[in-house]
Design a protein around this nucleic acid. Sequence first.
RNA 1: GGAGGCAUAGCUCAGCUGGGAGAGCGCUUGCCUUACAAGCAAGAUGUCAUAGGUUCAAGUCCUAUUGUCUCCACCA
Length: 875
Amino acid sequence: MDLPKNFEPQSFENEIYSEWESKGYFRPEVDHDKTPFSIVIPPPNITGQLHMGHALNNTIQDIIIRHKRMQGYSTLWLPGTDHASIATEVKIVDKLREEGLDKETIGREEFLKRAYEWKATYGGKIVKQLRRLGSSCDWSREAFTMDERCSKAVREVFVNLYRKGLIYQGSRIINWCPHCETALSDAEVEYDEKAGFLWHIRYPYADGSGYLIIATTRPETLLGDTAVAVNPKDPRYTDKIGKMLKLPLTDREIPIVADDYVELDFGTGCVKITPAHDPNDFEVGLRHNLEVIRIMDDSGVINENGFAYVGLDRDEARKKIVEDLEKLGLMEKIEPYTHNVGECYRCKAVVEPIVSKQWFVKMDELARPAIKVVRDNKISFIPERFSKTYFNWMENIKDWCISRQLWWGHRIPAWYCPECGEVIVEKEDPTCCPKCGCKEIHQDEDVLDTWFSSALWPFSTLGYPDNTEDLNYFYPTNVLVTAYDIIFFWVARMIFSGLEHMGQIPFPEVLIHGIVRDAKGRKMSKSLGNGIDPLELIDKYGADALRFSLTTGVAPGSDIRFSEDKIEPSRNFLNKLWNASRFVLMNSEGKVLPKIGSFRYTPADKWILYKLNKVTREVNNYLKKYELGMANAALYDFIWSDFCDWYIELTKPALYSDNEKAKCETLAVLTYVLKQILKLMHPFTPFITERIWKECGEESTIMLAEYPAYSKKHNFVEDFNKFESIKEIIRSVRNLRAEMDVPVSKKLNLYVVTNDQRYVAKNASYVMKLANVEAVNFVASKADVTEKSVSIVASESEVYIPLGELVDVEKEMQRLSKELKVMEGEIKRSEGMLNNPGFVAKAPKQLIENEKAKLQANSEKKAKLLERIEELKNM
RNA sequence: GGAGGCAUAGCUCAGCUGGGAGAGCGCUUGCCUUACAAGCAAGAUGUCAUAGGUUCAAGUCCUAUUGUCUCCACCA
């Protein structure tokens, strides 16, 4: 045996992982005699560092995949990374800026070169970190959203959708990030409540007959106003509809139009209409045929349409415009006003809605079947409530803006002919315009939304569009594991993409987990500096402890508050397992153990085998339902309380005896239970279990050992219950010792009155060892115990313990009275139920029988307690 | 405005299909008992948010209320 006294994960985790990987245990075969089981990883961004969210997400996947692998499935966990178009580009631009450079100066080619270098340097980092966590991913199949295979899939899908008319180009109002200088999809905009103002501005009538007051939160957009709208039913303004207004600070005149969009009871009832910079105004503009005047360039600076404000940044322009309006006496009032402001999800800059020509995916047709498969339970969310989130999004979905004015990503495969204006979208790069033969065609400058490629992940990584063996065997995947915050970005898009391009759902189950928060319940973020680095935790406590703590006390879908003190109990638990193993191994050294089942079990053996069997069934059931927190708790309790605290202690009389046969048989059971425990635990804590497994003399890896399953052979329910009565005696003696202040060192003498003397006698050694008892004597009745003693009333027996002068009658009286009170409470409860005619008539029979039995037993106990109390009174 | 979560021991949270309130940490007491002090043994601690309802039976199901968090929408 070669295990140090304390569990030191640092000394073996990396070595074990390398061995697993090099021996190819993570790599499945396409084996048609086996059932495939596959998961694709939610690809982390190449810009990413492993954070607690990744740790949780991948721990869950690894538990699922290891369980299935041990159950004999051909198991694939396909890893990879995401190029993260915006996030990466932002980082590279920042780096350029530090060098005093920018994108335009170095040009597209050089930029991409740098991006690939960046990917080579940092992109592998997170993948290494995933290994440290123990993730059993098949790295030979590792994918990247911009690798050749995925890019081919993107091209295929784009062209197919374009040909079907599901991808189109159009000038529409979109979300624009002036910092990243790109369009964003609706999902990429985050709204944050901000304190601002509601400015009330006077718009004079062109004919000089007074003014109207409009209210706005963005006065600078006034420069692009092309109308003021009122509600047609608003009596205040019905006669004004059609009149012209003089637009302040400009030389333009704009009409008053009537539109239902205007609410009667908000603000002044008049809304300035800026079609180029507000989605609602854009719609109003379309209805009234209004001019669309863009007043800002791509970086948020006022353009040539801005009169005196040309060249000002949008914030400066706002300030100046407010000032000028005040000077002109056109500012009616300024009210404080909190409202939601849209921000870029990457850089947090305030998003500017602008009209721009972009590429879109038409969503109606794609969304419909994607809703149906969830509706029909072809795909289910776990927990189920997240399907509501999904429906809500899918049923209100708008067309998806997929073009980004960035360079890092899949370049849009569209070419334009300068001669005839033809747009060419083909699977192969065209060299000339097929219509007019012009050779000067040029490719669209933009790239695709990152999520366009991740939407294809479950099949692009398996070889789509080629008809590969992997794709045939492993698609659809079995379950997708992700946090709820990317249901829209990713899960929804994978579902409609899978249906559209593969004709099949990408996965039947979506397991949703929560977000890892800090001790105060806040999201972990760089800006708050409240993040916990999982790698530091792994260094300090080991990956197993981290993994185990992440599944402790968690329910599917709910957030986890995590702080370092949560990991310690897990580490302690693993140390416990470690030392229990040491105990078994130390005692087995140099011994040849009989085969399990080839000898008679002791009562304690049967007790632990029954419990082991029970926990085996529970863990399998919980894993099947992805109740990892429940499985975790079941294992924790069994290993610590049942195996260590009870069974190991119970084996000591035999192990320390001279009976070599009994010793070896006991060790055989201990070893068997330990190995079953290691296998049960392995998906949760892969490293420690492998380490001990090897120490048990196993040649092969535990990773590929068969996962324990429920066995009818070990269903010793009667033996189990019987042995519980022995445990009860032990517990009672210990309790009595503590309550009566009897020193632990003092050996006790027991006088037992029982109706099953044979059984108690057979188990006397356990009582002696575990309760520090000198002798267990049997007597016919209490009358045979002449010394001054205290007593225990257990279910099958009464135990008298002569304590001589140590007996404190007062104390003993109190102790018995307390027990009596508890018993009376129990009896009252049982009687209440059994005297209730409704209960007796309607409750399940088994339950009634159980209750009757309890009442019977408790009444007997009560009677004995009363007897004892009477006796004490006479002492 | 719409949707959803949560409210259980001092703290952090479990509690599956209704049937005697649980864990970890913390706390009290006693222990270096030849696997483990990262430990052992024995304890204490709960109007299961509030009010109704369904039921023989409710922490669990239904309704309302309060508090709290989140997502979606975006009325200038």
